[in-house]
Design a protein around this nucleic acid. Sequence first.
DNA 1: CGCAAATGTCACCCATAGGTGACATGAGTC
DNA 2: GACTCATGTCACCTATGGGTGACATTTGCG
Lengths: 213, 213
Amino acid sequence: MTGAQGRKRDRKATEALIMKAVGTVLTREGFPGLTLKAVAAEAGVDKVLIYRYYGPIDALLTAYGQSVEFWPTVADVVPPEPEAISPAARLAYFLDRTTEELSRRPLTLELLAMEVGAPNPLTEALDTVREAWGRDVAQHLLGGSDPDPQLNVAISLVLAGIQNLLVRGRTTGIYSGMDIGSAEGWREIRASLPWLCERLLPSRPDPNPSTED
Amino acid sequence: MTGAQGRKRDRKATEALIMKAVGTVLTREGFPGLTLKAVAAEAGVDKVLIYRYYGPIDALLTAYGQSVEFWPTVADVVPPEPEAISPAARLAYFLDRTTEELSRRPLTLELLAMEVGAPNPLTEALDTVREAWGRDVAQHLLGGSDPDPQLNVAISLVLAGIQNLLVRGRTTGIYSGMDIGSAEGWREIRASLPWLCERLLPSRPDPNPSTED
DNA sequence: CGCAAATGTCACCCATAGGTGACATGAGTC
DNA sequence: GACTCATGTCACCTATGGGTGACATTTGCG
């Protein structure tokens, strides 16, 4: 189980084992359990090698942060043909997809939790990626239209709320009476998104039918 | 600075020092810095006493959790005469007040951060309090009216978003292009709440005036 | 007063975490 | 085949954290 018994001496392969082990340990044990020892054991590698190849543990985290795709891509969460549907539907699609994509990334949720409780090089990487993603998504969603600052705040709050509840859902079952700990509960939450988006971006058919083709 | 030099032997006084020190350390160092040693030093008390009076550190946290008012009261965040204003204004008042009350409680924000990253007896207490508060507030805000589940989800998401951004604001400056790290930024966010609430609870005078009295 | 229990102090133990030096063993090179 | 350097292994160090035993001192009470 331990050591390089079966495999040749191969730094690249060893490094790959280490990177993979970081993710595995992080997912299984959470950040508190992410120790050199645990990573070494998981990778079947001596911890000296980890230190030798990556330096202090912060550097290891940085390296890992650059090696993995934590966050959904813009394409993952933006409707294929944004112009074909109403702004509200666009927004709902985006929120719904983001929710789903994040919920299937336990590692990312762990990172989001660390981000507020114990910032570290890993979470910094995530932070940067998320901000860039946010700007990018806004581009795709709003097109070039003048963004209403109040609307922007509202959307950001909802998005931050979804992330908060996803993160909480890892360890808690209930928030404000909502079931945030089960797939069932999240289906219900997601089902409410279109209603919410319609409120934020009402598609009144009469005054300015610019969004209709 | 250390020891019971100046003061009499008085368990009650010592316990008060310890409790206060927990809060001080937690506020200053965050949860990672909340160690027996740090608390003992801050309180000017030998750590043995802490152990003797409270038992293992988890018990200390539990005791502290029961000794402090983390969360705003319902009266803090509910308008004085709810019936006198529109549902949207009621909701806006609530969100605005909650935001302000939380933002002036660094300790509570620290707890909220720990809640997702490193759950412990302290955060459990907070969790319980918050849930009860949520139910209570809903009572006062909606009166006994039938709660629209979709509206409920929307409000919860916004509330969770506010909490998320407040917590992030401790250590981060920007989220989705919004300034969440300064009082100025939060003023802007709070200024957007009425608009948001009006969208969620439109007070249209014509179609279905069921929410009017 | 004289004594016992409560309170405070000190010195330690054990476990774990990050980090390092020295050594063994393999792989490639001339 | 001998030499060298990278790779892997082991034992160890230091610091810190929670936790404990034994001792000193003070308080309060019969």
